[in-house]
């Protein structure tokens, strides 16, 4: 059964004349991995701030668990990381996590497990201020997981990390997603979202642009990359196929865009029948980045 974790209704936030978030309505359901996409300043963090009780909405409202719990009660059952890790610098990792357990009213049993998961168990007695940025970020993830949350909210979790740190965090997120935890991942890094999420919400200037599956973000049937010795005859032949929308020449090959479904086998069969043989044939889907750019620019 799908359960609504969070429901936003016409949620808005203005800073003076600037509308950071404009009449945003959303529903997050259990079991999905959501990507919240948008360029910098599109209202992602403000939206998260509102549902996390740190930013007051200008208008509209939101409900956790269908209104069964107040916001601060609901927050005890979820885990969230925002922008950068905030801990007490004079406390050790262990003390910080213990404090969070007191606030969340959860058992401290899982502290060791979570610290081991992020690889910080050996450093548990070091003060937070001695940690590197990557370690701080990983501690933040451990802290967000310590209550075995039903929903994990991550806002730019790889911001400011080196490639190795980014890789570690991503691997962690994928691991968590596989364990069945609902995740909301806000990011402007699209490949990050593409790798992990099955649902995408796109924001631009505080307005919702798109909500749905990753594949459906833009209506596209993908394209073929073709190479052959005689490009001209190939091009001529392809123009006669019904599903072809347009053809571009690129890197000594052809890029063939489709307006309807066409499988690789079908195309290669047609080519063989016409006695045209190609050195390269590949069907490609546009990357999320391409789709995202098309989407945000087209409207």
């Amino acid at each position: 059964m799908e359960e609504n974790l969070l429901e936003l209704t016409q949620l808005s936030k203005s800073y003076g004349r600037l509308k950071a978030v404009d009449q945003l309505s959303l529903t997050l359901k259990k079991g999905n991995v959501y990507g919240l996409l948008g360029p910098n300043g599109s209202g992602k963090s403000t939206t998260l701030g509102m549902v996390l009780n740190v930013v007051n909405p200008t208008s509209g409202n939101f409900q956790w668990y269908g209104g069964a719990l107040t916001t601060h009660q609901a927050l005890k059952k979820i885990g969230a990381i925002i922008e950068r890790p905030n801990f007490y610098p004079y406390m050790t990792a262990l003390q910080n996590l213990n404090l969070i357990c007191k606030i969340k009213q959860c058992k401290t049993d899982s502290i060791q497990e979570k610290l081991e998961l992020v690889g910080l168990w050996d450093r548990r007695h070091s003060k937070f201020r001695t940690y590197s940025l990557g370690m701080k970020q990983r501690l933040a993830i451990a802290a967000a997981l310590v209550n075995n949350p039903e929903l994990l909210i991550l806002d730019e979790p790889t911001n400011g990390l080196d490639p190795e740190g980014i890789h570690q965090i991503r691997a962690l997120i994928i691991k968590i997603a596989k364990s069945g935890t609902t995740i909301l991942l806000a990011s402007h890094l699209l490949d990050e979202v593409e790798k992990v999420c099955n649902q995408v919400i796109v924001l631009k200037n505080g307005v919702k642009f798109y909500e749905g599956s990753v594949d459906g973000i833009s209506q596209t049937y993908g394209y073929f990359e073709l190479k052959a010795k005689n490009l001209d005859s190939l091009k001529q032949f392809l123009k006669g196929i019904a599903q072809v929308e347009s053809i571009e020449e690129e890197n000594n090959g052809l890029k063939v865009f489709l307006k309807n479904e066409l499988e690789s086998e079908e195309l290669s069969e047609k080519l063989a029948e016409a006695k045209i043989f190609v050195s390269h044939l590949a069907k490609k889907k546009p990357s999320l980045e391409d789709q995202f750019l098309t989407l945000t620019q087209s409207k």
């Binding site: 009780n53 107040t70 925002i82 905030n86 969070i100």
Partner: peptide, 11 residues
């Protein structure tokens, strides 16, 4: 940490 406390579920 006030922000973190609130996010962790303190009102």
């Amino acid at each position: 940490t006030i922000k973190q406390n609130l996010i962790d579920g303190m009102s």
